[in-house]
Each structure stands twice: as structure tokens, then as C-alpha cells.
Design a protein around this nucleic acid. Structure first.
Lengths: 127, 127
DNA sequence: ATTATACGTAAGCAATTCCTTACATGTCAA
DNA sequence: TTGACATGTAAGGAATTGCTTACGTATAAT
């Protein structure tokens, strides 16, 4: 009952961005919208699924706040709304430190292997 | 048929990282593994679901290459394997430019609003 | 040896996802 | 107006997800 937001009724209260980007078709839609604003028919063209399927994917993206639609005559032109991706970006960046630490650890390990292999080399001219 | 990699047969051929991180429990598991290596029982403790449910989540993470397990007596200690997150990181970073462009556009818009509001300010000492 | 602990996995089930086809609505064109 | 686009949505169904309980198998403890 006492759910997420009591104050977000204008904004569609972004429905899980992580879920929205989990589907490869939806990611490809976003990729293409990063280049151009496109209509549904244009968006659907390169995909192997039906046009309504794309409409449904667009709904998921819309509810996640990742795309916006503007009506142009009988067409609806979609544009990328990248802000919600910040949540993913932030989450991923938590691991940057860990990342580097791990690479460093691997590097140290390899260095130690080298030391054990070579044991008394001084000239370090090979890369 | 001619899929991504023809040379990855030792590694479990990472099963969709985007899907693996789409579930909040799995993200929280990764978050905790970024601090400590933990056993399944330790991992399961704070969650509202059963221990087998966590085991199943761990399988998804394992198949995505995001965690590694090492057997320690009757326990299995899991550790974070952040490398596959690079795919997500790379994908997200495609949008960095778009991001900044959009922020810049917003900024310009606000600047123009300011210009219309103030119209003849010269001293630019505030940051 | 027996019992308890730590874990994976199978089976079963409700809910959800993702597709399809069919249809309703709104807009341009003749 | 009539017909051809452009699009959203509803209905239905197969596949998948995410949980549960039950069970099997190691390992540790007694």
C-alpha cells in the first residue's frame, strides 16, 4: 500500500530503468534514438518483430522515462530522454574502484609470477 | 548461428549481463559482494526470500560471469567478478555525449532566460 | 556411525514477459 | 466523404521468471 512516491504524479514515476534496458530490442531502440528522433514505423522497420511489438517496447521505455513522444500529424516522433540512465551509470560507477583494485591485484599476481620465473633479472627492457 | 564468439568455450559464455542485473535482489547481492566475499547463508540472511531463491539468483549471476564461487569445506564463498559489467558501462557511456549535449541545451535555454530577464548585466563574478 | 549444517537442484505454480492478430482512433489525401 | 496511413491497445497464448517446498549430497561435529 504505502508505495514508492506520494508526490510524483506528474512524472510517470519511472518504472525500473534496469528492467527497461534489459531487453536487447529496447536497447537498440535507444541506440537509434541517440542518433535521430524517429517515428514508430521508422523504428519498427529494421526489427524482426511486428509493429505493435515495438509499440509495446516503446511503452516500457516511456514508462521508464527513457523516451518522450511528440505528436506530429498522424505520426508520433520519439526522442531519447537519457536522464534515467544516470541511475544505471551511478550504480555501475560504484564498481570502478573495485575494478581497478582487481586489475591491480591481477597485475601484482603476474608480477610475482614473473619474479618467480626470472628470479634474478635486472634489465627490464622488454615490455 | 554465427554468433558472438567462436573462441569462448572455457568461460561460460556470459549469459546476458543486462538481464542478470535487472533484478533488484541480484544487484543487492553484487553490492554486498563488493564489500566482502560471502557464503550463501550469509548472503541470504538479509533478504525476505528463501535460501534456495538466493541460490537461484546466484546461478544467474554465475552464468553471467559476475560472481565466482570457491568451495571452503561445506561452505561456498562467493566473490564479485566485475569484468562483465564493462559491457554495461560501455553501453551507458555511449550516452555520455548525448547527456552533456542535453544538459548544455538546458543550460543554454536557462542562460537565454537569464538574458531576457536581466538583459544588461556585465559583472560575471558568481560561479 | 550418526547427526547437523551448507548448499545445489528438481518440481510445481502464479505471475509476468513478449509476441501475435484484431480492432479502434485519429489524421492526411483524393 | 471515403479510403489509406500511423499508431495505440486489447485479447490470447507460449515461454520465462521467481518463488516455494522437498530432497540429494557433501562436509563437519559428536
Amino acid at each position: 500500500m504505502a508505495n514508492s512516491s506520494t508526490t510524483e504524479e506528474e512524472q510517470p514515476a519511472d518504472a525500473d530503468v534496469f528492467l527497461a534496458i534489459a531487453h536487447p530490442i529496447r536497447r537498440r531502440i535507444l541506440d537509434r534514438l541517440a542518433r535521430d528522433d524517429l517515428t514508430v514505423t521508422q523504428l519498427a522497420a529494421p526489427f524482426a518483430v511486428s509493429r505493435p511489438a515495438i509499440s509495446q517496447h516503446l511503452r516500457v521505455l516511456r514508462e521508464a522515462g527513457l523516451v518522450a513522444e511528440r505528436r506530429q500529424g498522424r505520426e508520433r516522433r520519439y526522442s531519447l530522454q537519457p536522464q534515467p540512465l544516470a541511475e544505471v551509470s551511478d550504480w555501475i560507477h560504484q564498481y570502478d574502484h573495485f575494478w581497478r583494485t582487481r586489475l591491480a591485484a591481477l597485475s601484482n599476481y603476474l608480477d610475482e609470477q614473473d619474479e618467480q620465473d626470472e628470479q634474478d633479472e635486472h634489465a627490464e627492457q622488454e615490455q
